[in-house]
């Protein structure tokens, strides 16, 4: 068929021949790519459809009886606080590990550490949750007792929970869980530091730390910020660890006692038994979570991408 076309119209030979295989294959590729866009739109659309009843319902019918907003804000607050604490705890440690791998450890050890960090990222969150509740939370109780006795005048350290199942415990476990992502992003950018900058610093007589402070950190800072935001996004959506560790209750400023709750944990705990309006409520809470993480991730990507443009690497 192609032959006949080609022999009858000579000028047409310069045009690329369109084969069935190419059309099918190219179509499948384009289709899959577009399907991904549709999925993302679908996530938003279906969540909105299913959340509508809760958003439009009579405020008295929502849990708590004061409308969706007053139901969801303590959850949003719990989620954000828990993730922020995790981020604050994890970032210095992650940067330290990244520096350890990129500038302190012997090169062969670095690969092994990379594997350990990957392993940390691969452990399922439910296992982290079980470990956090069974092993880690009881270990923290003495610390909480000490905080209550000595720093009790700060509202954050009120009455300590005897089980250690508090929002601070959940935050610390989350911090361990988001370590790998911050570490890997930071390590990438630290390794990209122009070799000549480092050598110049050292040649001027800088100690290793001074070299890191003057050459590596300024260069890697946008990457660290981006990685931190990605870690924050991960922490915001993390469900099982919080659901298992935290013994939830109403909102409180006391971070070492039981209380507070996060959106994902609230959904995981109540969804299996929910029906009707309660179901819509939980889905609406999920929609709020989706919007928050979307915003954080867009911001993180924007920072990381902006950095990629002027890095001069590659």
């Amino acid at each position: 068929m192609n032959d006949s076309v080609a022999t009858e119209q000579r000028p047409a030979r310069t045009k690329p021949v369109r084969r069935v295989g190419d059309i099918v294959f190219g179509g499948a590729s384009l289709g899959s790519a577009v399907l991904i866009l549709l999925t993302l739109v679908g996530v938003a659309v279906f969540l909105v459809i299913k959340a509508m009843p809760a958003l439009t319902a009579d405020p008295a019918e929502i849990s708590g009886g004061k409308g969706f907003f007053s139901y969801v804000w303590p959850l949003v607050f719990g989620t954000v606080v828990c993730s922020l604490i995790a981020m604050v705890l994890a970032t210095p440690v992650a940067v330290g590990i990244a520096l350890f791998v990129s500038h302190y450890s012997p090169r062969r050890l670095g690969a092994g550490i990379g594997f350990v960090i990957d392993l940390l990222a691969a452990v399922p969150s439910v296992v982290f949750g079980m470990w956090g509740m069974a092993v880690f939370a009881p270990k923290l109780f003495p610390l909480y007792g000490w905080l209550e006795d000595n720093l009790g005048f700060i509202p954050l350290f009120g009455e300590a929970s005897a089980s250690g199942r508090t929002i601070l415990t959940a935050s610390i476990v989350l911090a361990v869980m988001i370590l790998p992502i911050i570490t890997s992003v930071s390590r990438e950018v630290f390794l990209q530091t122009p070799r000549l900058h480092e050598e110049a610093a050292l040649a001027l007589g800088a100690t290793r730390w001074e070299m890191i402070r003057t050459a590596v950190l300024p260069f890697g800072m946008p990457g660290v910020v981006g990685g931190t935001m990605l870690g924050l996004g991960r922490a915001l959506g993390e469900t099982m660890a919080v659901a298992i560790i935290l013994s939830p209750n109403v909102f409180t400023w006391n971070f070492i006692g039981s209380g507070n709750q996060t959106i994902p944990a609230e959904i995981a705990l109540h969804f299996p038994e929910a029906s009707g309006l309660r179901l819509a409520e939980l889905i609406a809470a999920g929609l709020v979570l989706f919007v928050i993480t979307l915003a954080v991730n867009l911001f993180a990507r924007w920072i990381v991408d902006r950095r990629a443009e002027f890095s001069g690497a590659n």
Partner: peptide, 9 residues
Amino acid sequence: VMTGIPSIV
């Protein structure tokens, strides 16, 4: 962006 969708969502 999709990488960042929370698993529960």
